[in-house]
Simulated assay, not measured.
Amino acid sequence: MIVTEIENCGSGKRKVYLDGQPAFVLYRGELSGCHIEKDQELPEAVYREIMDEILWKRIRMRCLYLLKSMDRTEYQLRTKLKQNFYPEELIDRVILWLENLHYLDDVRYAESYIRTHGESLSTLQLKQKLTQRGVPRDVIQEALENQEGPDEEELIRKWVKKKKTDPSDCTPAEKQKLYAFLMRKGFSSSGVRKVLQSGSEMQNEYS
């Protein structure tokens, strides 16, 4: 392995390129301590020391810090570590380490998100939000089944009440507008029609 480039990353950090590819980031003092110089060969023993001791300790501490303030999905954590220029090898390794310690659990994350937001978001919206956070579809489905998901009709009634529109006492145009609004919220057409057609039940909400 040849050190082909050493790039200044700021804050005393240097990105090291091996054989033309970005390999890892070290502090300037660590760079000197490992005797890393441009256009020089990096011995395998030194490379392993950097990966298995210096960076392995650092990436674990970084993950514990990131997870201390808030729960994260595997995707979110991987993205953050890549932004910090950690090698893919160590990212895979630390993800497995965290999962074995139950510090990282996408099912738990999804279930917690559903519990927190299930009273204000439709099932479709929950799926979309969790997908954006990198939670796999099968994990989302499992979490929805474990949490039973939101009561769609009850959520629709809450949104109708927020809009301060009585479906039993509005024009066809107003009802169509309300229908379109609820569909954009991710509710099923059958659920929306059922609630909007139950005029007497909705009237009780306004009495």
Rank of each mutant, 00 (worst) to 15 (best):
P87F: 15
L96Q: 13
F24P: 09
H35D: 14
E205R: 02
A110E: 01
K177P: 00
I95E: 09
I54G: 05
R62D: 07
Y65I: 01
C63D: 02
K164Y: 06
E49K: 14
C170I: 11
G199V: 01
I114K: 05
Q132V: 01
C63K: 00
Y206S: 03
Y86I: 02
E119D: 11
K129Y: 09
V195L: 07
L182G: 07
D105A: 05
Q197L: 05
K15V: 06
R108K: 14
K68T: 00
W56K: 01
G29F: 04
V107G: 05
C170K: 05
I36P: 07
K13C: 11
K185Y: 08
L64F: 02
G29C: 06
K177L: 15
N84D: 11
M1L: 11
S198E: 05
L196G: 04
L42M: 13
L42R: 13
T116A: 03
E119C: 00
R72C: 13
Q147W: 06
D71L: 03
R72I: 04
E30F: 01
Q203H: 14
I6F: 08
H35M: 11
Q147N: 01
S120F: 14
P43L: 12
S168L: 00
E201A: 04
Y47S: 14
K129E: 12
D151L: 15
W159C: 11
E49H: 15
K13E: 15
D106G: 07
S122V: 12
K161G: 05
L81Q: 03
S189D: 07
Q125P: 01
V160I: 15
S207M: 08
K15W: 09
